[in-house]
């Protein structure tokens, strides 16, 4: 009896040890970046993963998985169908993802997931070359009103993507009516678009500030307006859109979601852990270094924000004809 008990417990220990060893990757916290390495979503996962470990908010390391496809649609579909109750999984997203959802380009709507929080945001800007005749948003909108196809506008998103839409919102708020006539040239990144701006191939660029700030400091380009509520401290000369009478903001926030069937307990733990992370020195430094403005919205507040943004983006996309 006793021998048998010892034997069983030994076996148990061995198999437990083996299981722990074998199952470690599956049980560890995982952050999916729905893109290739490099870029914003990858940064979100890698930085947040690192800081979660540094602050001991999770056991061990956070495993970062890259799952590119369909601007996040592949990951969205996979989480919805296979891992909707996996409390150890978080996924990076941003305004870009919500724009895709609003335009019906994801396999499911916002209700399929639980939205944890946003931790920072990049600010949209409108820029021209240093020697451009356009001096303000008013100049730009006047030129577009007179002849919408007179200027070539460019940015890093596709037609109907976030860089394009927020420029059109600014134009609409500034009184331009024939929005579809404005020409848009897509480049692979904000800096690509800016080099073409300096090279004189395009006239106006709309994109995030973080990528192109260096060109503003070097004097190659000028900011016509920034799409934030307040001026950006590093570029305090550049007026906001609101100051110029254009009632709009255009942030590109960075945040996280988890599966739709995750329990309330697990969800609340995540939200509070992320809030702790947000308030840490580590995150504040990392975010600023990456060119983000730290902004926190979490839990129910964030859920409501997501739904509102999804609705607003869908309405605008319909208004300007990106979707029917």
């Amino acid at each position: 009896m006793r021998v048998a008990a010892i034997w069983t417990s030994k076996l148990g220990m061995i198999s437990a040890g083996f299981m722990a060893f074998a199952a470690l990757p599956a049980d560890a916290t995982e952050c999916i970046a729905p893109s290739n390495p490099g870029g914003g979503w990858d940064f979100t996962c890698r930085t947040i993963g690192r800081i979660l470990t540094e602050l001991d908010l999770v056991d061990g390391n956070v495993q970062v998985t890259n799952m590119p496809g369909g601007v996040g649609a592949v990951t969205y579909a996979m989480v919805a169908s296979e891992r909707s109750d996996d409390a150890d999984l978080i996924v990076a997203t941003s305004t870009v993802g919500i724009t895709q959802i609003a335009q019906g380009k994801y396999p499911a709507g916002v209700d399929a997931m639980r939205w944890l929080g946003m931790l920072g945001a990049d600010v949209g800007v409108v820029a021209v070359a240093a020697d451009s005749e356009i001096q303000s948003m008013a100049d730009l909108n006047e030129a577009l009103k007179a002849d919408p196809s007179s200027l070539t506008t460019a940015g890093s998103s596709s037609i109907g993507g976030w860089d394009h839409i927020r420029l059109l919102i600014a134009a609409r708020e500034g009184g331009v009516e024939d929005l579809p006539a404005i020409r848009w040239v897509q480049f692979d990144g904000g800096t690509d678009a800016v080099t073409q701006l300096i090279g004189g191939q395009v006239d106006v660029v709309s994109t995030d500030i973080s990528e192109i700030g260096g060109f503003v400091e070097s004097g190659d380009i000028r900011l016509l307006g920034v799409m934030s509520d307040e001026r950006i401290p590093a570029f305090s000369d550049a007026p906001t859109m609101i100051e110029q009478g254009i009632e709009m903001t255009g942030y590109n926030w960075r945040g996280l979601y988890t599966g739709g069937d995750v329990s309330d307990d697990a969800y609340n733990t995540w939200v509070s852990n992320l809030e702790t992370l947000y308030n840490s020195e580590n995150w504040q430094t990392a975010a600023v270094e990456f060119g983000l403005v730290p902004i926190w919205r979490g839990g129910d507040d964030f859920e409501a924000y997501i739904r509102e943004q999804e609705k607003v983006t869908a309405d605008i996309s319909r208004d300007i004809g990106v979707i029917q």
């Binding site: 870029g39 890698r46 260096g214 990392a286 270094e289």
Partner: peptide, 16 residues
């Protein structure tokens, strides 16, 4: 592109 991301995470901002 990956190297760029790496530099940025090391607080090096490539640019002019």
């Amino acid at each position: 592109a990956v190297m760029l991301a790496m530099l940025i995470s090391l607080n090096v901002q490539p640019g002019p």
